[in-house]
Design a protein around this nucleic acid. Structure first.
Length: 645
RNA sequence: CGCGAGGUAGAGCAGUUCGGUAGCUCGUCGGGCUCAUAACCCGGAGGUCGGAGGUUCAAAUCCCCCCCUCGCAACCA
């Protein structure tokens, strides 16, 4: 690093977490990665601002709060506390935690909305479609039959459900140009191609930016039926959190840190951050963030982590068993740049044992032990260098450069790998120099002193590099080897470890080796002991409510795949003298042949609908359990037409 | 023909930009060492680089076709 007059700013954000449940390890990975980058940038001399937060509005939260019989604000207060607790548990060093329910944020969102409305970029329109008054339903051009409602066959008229829309297309060319001129803007590159081919090239639809169907959101100031829908609300946290002011009286932080250097987000929301968000900024005449990185996902083994699959792993459980730094190390190391990573309890143990315990912890332990054993914990100034030492020194200094290069391109896992190569090199150096045999010869005392110094220095350099990834571990090692030389500058050259410092006389192993079998058993017991979630049922209904549903038995006469949708099957169902077509989303579980001739339960009086061009009159009843196993409800003896009650 | 990613040793991955002895980690087998946490270091075995064809003196790498897996989009009345 060259000498700097003024520190360069670096603004990094994570996506804000949706405050509707406890984040699992996959969600937690993002903030840990952001934290590692933020800490690294701080160490290398940047003036860093690191922001995270929660998205607290929307229908789902409104519903969940209702389910819990809580006021939505009280509900999100509680959820946000849970999220914050995990972020803090992971030792993440964010500077600001924004909540979309913050007064300042809400006020700015309203102003932004107003400004765009006045500018003409947001306009009120109605959901284009046909409305059937008796059915209270909207139909598209393709759905209506001969200008009539496909449901009741009565007249329909032009739709009137109002909504505010954002003119996306107006800025599409400008955005496209920006993407092309800034190849680093969307990372990794595969995501960029996806955006261009799937969304920009086919042409952007105007985006619906308000809702009337729920209340828990930022109200539109000039039209109180509407609340601002997620995009404008959530995305603008990146500027409101810094004190952006729509009228131009920006806070100091905003003036200093915007535009963001990096939005770190999951690959599932790349579209919102690389299309909607930049366009929103263009419309507001604000400069665009420099880079958006859509990171891959953490999978459980080979599957997506999800509650319904029952394979959720939470950060706090992992930390309970392995400690914060081990988990930080695991997620950062195991997640490749552009491909999904994988986590299992077994894998975590393997990584900890082979990398943290064997290579790193043991290296520190054996080195400190030797310094104690041969020099009473304190090295001297006498030196005797050999050519073999050069190699270690070069390697260490090269590693510093390599890590910097990798971090610059956000290759966090590769950076960690490089550090561990240095640690391996140190272990090898011990075998090359054989300190214990030097110790047997009084004449080789100086040589031995030099060898151990080199080892401590190698460890010190590696540990300074490790600090952004495992802050606690680094601190412990600084204590063990008793050094104050922990700045980044101190590792740009060899030999800054303080000679006369006494290392600890009781080196405690940094990472204990784990007995995999015993540990897995312990974990298994713990997970089983965790209370299973209480069964939740929907609100009580009366027998009259139930009587409205006409459930019948029907014989499947014929069944084929839906020509234009791979998850759907099109069935011909006979129910007494009635014969009808029903579309069902069970193509992933049943092949058409399996169903023909079966007698299944279905809802006979459900309003008809067109699904991808095929009419469906009714719904086949199925049962699905948590693992995703799905079966139709089938009878054998009863004739079709039979009533189910 | 929707878009995209991937298929390399038992497992997980790098190498493909710009063709030239196929590499890393874990596991496994053998050896070395005794400072250390049964840790560390060295070596061996194990791969027709998804398949067929083409270009070339030479293909994991370039071109064409095909197969398989995953993600996104559409879709679950």
């Amino acid at each position: 690093m060259c000498e700097k007059v003024k520190k360069k700013e670096y603004y990094i954000t994570t996506a804000i977490a949706y405050a509707s449940g406890k984040p699992h390890i996959g969600n937690t990975y993002e903030i840990v990665m952001a934290d590692a980058i933020a800490r690294y940038k701080r160490m290398t001399g940047y003036d860093v601002f690191f922001q995270t937060g929660t998205d607290e509005h929307g229908q789902k939260i409104e519903e969940k709060a209702q389910e819990a019989k809580m006021d939505p604000q009280a509900y999100v207060d509680q959820q946000t506390a849970v999220i914050k607790e995990i972020w803090d548990l992971m030792n993440t060093s964010y500077d600001k935690f924004v909540r979309t329910t913050d007064d300042y944020h809400k006020k700015q969102v309203q102003k932004i909305f107003e400004k765009l409305y006045k500018k003409g970029d947001i306009y009120k329109s109605e959901y284009e479609g046909w409305y059937c008054t008796p059915c209270e339903s909207f139909w598209t051009d393709a759905q209506i039959v001969d200008g009539k409602c496909p449901d009741c066959e009565r007249e329909v008229h032009k739709a009137k459900e109002e909504s505010y829309f954002f003119k996306m297309s107006k800025y599409a060319d400008q955005l496209m140009e920006h993407i092309e001129n800034n190849p680093e803007f969307i990372q990794p590159e595969s995501r960029k191609n996806e955006m261009i081919n799937n969304f920009l090239k086919p042409g952007l639809q105007d985006l619906c930016v308000s809702r009337t169907s729920f209340k828990w959101g930022v109200p539109v100031t000039f039209d109180d039926k509407h609340v601002v829908y997620v995009w404008i609300d959530a995305l603008s946290n990146y500027i409101t959190g810094l004190g952006f002011d729509c009228d131009g009286n920006h806070g100091e932080l905003y003036k200093k840190y915007w535009p963001a250097d990096l939005h770190l987000i999951g690959k599932d929301i790349v579209r919102f951050h690389t299309i909607y968000w930049p366009i929103l900024l263009l419309a507001l005449d604000i400069s665009l963030p420099k880079q958006v990185f859509g990171h891959p996902w953490m999978l459980f083994g080979e599957e997506k982590i999800s509650k319904s699959r029952g394979n959720v792993i939470y950060a706090d459980d992992l930390v309970k068993f392995f400690g914060v730094d081990a988990i930080r190390y695991f997620v950062l190391n195991e997640m490749p740049f552009a491909q999904d990573g994988s986590i299992t309890w077994q894998l975590v143990i393997e990584r900890i044992n082979s990398d943290l315990a064997n290579i790193y912890g043991n290296l520190v332990n054996r080195t400190v032990s030797m310094v104690n054993k041969y020099f009473d914990g304190k090295l001297t100034e006498e030196r005797e260098y050999k050519p073999i030492d050069e190699d270690l020194m070069d390697f260490a200094l090269e590693t510093v450069k390599k890590v910097d290069h990798k971090m610059d391109s956000l290759r966090v896992a590769d950076a960690l790998d490089a550090i561990f190569e240095l640690l391996r090199r140190c272990n090898k150096y011990i075998d090359e120099t054989l300190p214990w045999s030097l110790a047997k010869d009084e004449n080789k005392k100086d040589r031995l002193n030099t060898v151990l110094y080199n080892l401590l220095e190698g460890i010190r350099i590696a540990t300074v590099l490790v600090e952004p990834f495992m802050p606690e571990t680094a601190r412990k090692i600084y204590n063990q080897i008793n050094t104050k030389q922990v700045s980044y500058n101190s590792i740009l050259s060899w030999g800054n470890y303080e000679v006369n410092n006494k290392v600890t006389d009781k080196p405690v192993p940094l990472f204990a080796r784990i007995d995999a079998e015993a540990k897995l058993e312990e974990i298994q017991k713990y997970l089983e002991a965790k209370e299973p979630e209480k069964m939740k049922f929907k609100d009580e209904i009366t027998i009259d409510d139930f009587a409205k549903i006409d459930i019948r038995i029907g014989t499947i006469l014929n069944c084929k795949k839906h020509p234009k949708a791979d998850k759907l099957l099109v069935l011909k169902v006979k129910c007494g003298s009635d014969e009808r077509q029903i579309v069902s989303g069970i193509a992933e579980k049943y092949s058409p042949e399996q169903l023909i001739g079966k007698k299944v339960a279905f809802i006979a009086n459900l309003a008809p609908i067109i699904l991808r061009g095929q009419q469906s009159r009714g719904m086949i009843l199925t049962a699905e359990d948590e693992s995703g196993m799905l079966e139709t409800i089938t009878v054998n003896e009863v004739e079709d037409g039979a009533v189910v009650k």
